[in-house]
Nucleic acid binder design. Structure first.
Lengths: 244, 244
DNA sequence: TGACACCAATCTGTGCAGGCATAAAAATAA
DNA sequence: TTATTTTTATGCCTGCACAGATTGGTGTCA
């Protein structure tokens, strides 16, 4: 076993809960899991703690480990996102993430134009130049990696750690989009120019320009993939009753 | 003890790490923690698992439990946010959250106008009416609770669970703003009208209007509290090197 | 002498097994 | 209905064995 044992248990249970094989409301007993997964109590307990933190289960005395419904899951948990992306809720997850990035990336570009450190502005210029090159050449694989790097960099250059932290799931979206063949066989010239303009604007501290061009990119992105979740139902959670 | 033991340990260690009393790079030993906190190994281990998931520590054999720096912390973890809000990084945390809500709430309002269920539209109308009433009356406490409910509702009514999940930290921002006396002694008439207009627009499925008025609210909000983080340094994290 | 590869000691987290305490649901009595 | 007892699964503790990483020493060769 290379990775730790309890991580395997987390993976096993987490993917099954998110995937729907273990339906909401199920009651798991630590003793049963011990036997079924052939691990000791301590491993089970640590795994349950982790799952509880992600909002997948709660464990209460005398009743057991209750599996919670999707509305309790922490939607920013990277594992939850990963599990959802390979489940039937894939469409819903893609929609949420895409709406989030449409909201965030223009602001990130605007901020980056104001506060990005010099080396990041330089790297952005390099990346967008390479994107144009490989894009016109039709090298989709290389283009994808550059695209991911580009958007991650803009998010990081905003100096907002919450923005920066979205890089990984957004990268997953971009990968998924090309894997599903939702990318044109050769990037649109327009898109190449917009990326170029974003990095130009950031380099010139032109925050309005950075935002405007990033908004253009987001608009096209949305149009390209919104067909994926056509008809997927929306989830409405009751807002938290004022605690404390 | 009403709450569980391991939760106390998580709280103890987490708040100290985020608060800076336990500096990055420190090495904690499970045995020492056992003795210092007077709890057993199992409790320590479960707590460490939870802290590790939040990115506060990693534990490796032969070396111990290493305390990680702020760039590794999960910025969407509710506990991390809570701890940061009572630490010296309060300004940075407020800025990140505010920038995020400025990005997200206009989009949430726009979506809500398109997809919100009828009961949520109704409640929004009620809330905004009450906000006007108590606001003009100068009842800041009542106004605050309504304001929190209003924004939480819009986020929930967007049908995007990632948006909806921001309600709690955003509520914390709003509470903090009034506690710090950053609210005018009586809400501006303008702000009351904007809230009213947002709920009107959502009720009438006028997505453009909902967005526009929410943007106005966000602009004013930003101006009212951006003084809090004047001069706070920004954190630039390296974007994740493409995995897989 | 000095550089380097290799091996053994040691330290610390990880996992296992079993024990008792306790809280909360369920059943029973009042 | 209300109060009390019983039941039962989790919470917490402890002793032990193991795995894997660091460290230091040993030996070889240049």
């Amino acid at each position: 076993m290379s990775t730790s044992l309890h991580a395997h248990v987390v993976e096993h249970l987490g993917s099954r809960i998110v995937g729907g094989q273990i339906p909401r409301g199920s009651i798991l007993l630590a003793a049963e899991l011990e036997e079924k997964l052939q691990v000791s109590r301590s491993v089970i307990r640590e795994a349950i703690r982790v799952l509880a933190q992600s909002g997948l289960v709660t464990s209460t005395k005398r009743v057991g480990i209750r599996v919670l419904g999707a509305e309790s899951w922490n939607p920013y948990d990277t594992q939850v996102i990963r599990w959802r992306l390979v489940s039937e809720q894939k469409g819903t997850q893609l929609r949420s993430l895409t709406e989030l990035r449409i909201s965030v990336e223009p602001m990130a570009a605007e901020l980056a134009a104001e506060v990005a450190p010099e080396n990041m502005r330089k790297e952005l210029m390099m990346i967008s130049a390479q994107m144009s090159h490989y894009g016109r050449q039709g090298d989709l694989h290389k283009f994808l990696e550059l695209d991911i790097r580009f958007h991650s960099l803009v998010l990081a250059a905003s100096g907002n750690e919450m923005f920066a932290n979205l890089a990984t799931p957004i990268g997953a979206i971009l990968r998924g989009r090309t894997e599903l063949g939702l990318m044109p066989e050769r990037p649109h010239e327009e898109a190449l120019l917009w990326h170029q303009s974003v990095s130009d604007a950031i380099s010139n501290s032109d925050s309005a320009g950075a935002r405007k061009n990033m908004e253009s990119i987001m608009r096209r992105t949305h149009n390209e993939i919104c067909s994926l979740w056509e008809g997927q139902p929306r989830v409405f959670v009751d807002p938290p009753k004022e605690p404390r």
